[in-house]
């Protein structure tokens, strides 16, 4: 079946098998391997991308369910000139990653969370990231990074 979607601003049209999951469409058909597959069972959140601006787990969606949607992956977050998105920058500054495998999903979930909660506090961040597992950091620096990003963004750093 034909599927059409915009990924990071570029329009794609492909013929796909109905059972193709969005994450494999992004990784293997579009070729954007920044989105990782972790648990493969919608628990870990490594495959989180934005669908029309909201975080979703791309391993628990058919590519066909994203027909007509606007998808943003980790590759589409930084500016074209390479300037990191405030969430990416805050992750870097706060050492919110080690092996980096959960990072793309964690960053995308954080972007969505900040959009939904302009006034974030620590409890909201901790609860809001419950769908993303990290086995390196113990979450502490991730929470710090998301709070730092939120305050940078509310202070006007362009997203």
């Amino acid at each position: 079946m034909q599927v059409r979607m915009r990924v990071n601003g570029t329009e794609y049209v492909h013929e796909v098998e109905p059972r193709l999951l969005l994450v494999y469409y992004l990784r293997e058909v579009v070729g954007l391997t920044g989105t990782n597959v972790g648990c493969d069972t919608s628990s870990c959140g490594a495959c989180t991308v934005l669908l029309d601006g909201e975080s979703v787990k791309s391993c628990t969606m058919l590519a066909l369910q994203a027909d007509g949607a606007e998808i943003t992956t980790i590759e589409g977050l930084a500016s074209p000139d390479g300037t990191l998105h405030p969430v990416q920058e805050a992750f870097r500054q706060n050492h919110a990653l080690q092996c980096g495998y959960c990072t793309p999903g964690m960053v995308m979930a954080a972007v969505s969370l900040i959009r939904e909660h302009p006034d974030l506090d620590e409890a909201t961040v901790r609860e809001g990231l419950e769908g993303n597992l990290c086995r390196c950091t113990g979450y502490h620096n991730i929470v710090k990074a998301v709070l730092a990003a939120a305050s940078a963004m509310s202070a006007g750093v362009p997203a």
């Binding site: 909201e54 975080s55 787990k57 628990t60 969606m61 979930a109 969370l113 939904e116 419950e130 769908g131």
Partner: peptide, 9 residues
């Protein structure tokens, strides 16, 4: 229910 990503879908 679930987590934010689940609640978005």
């Amino acid at each position: 229910v679930g987590d934010p990503q689940v609640r978005h879908r």
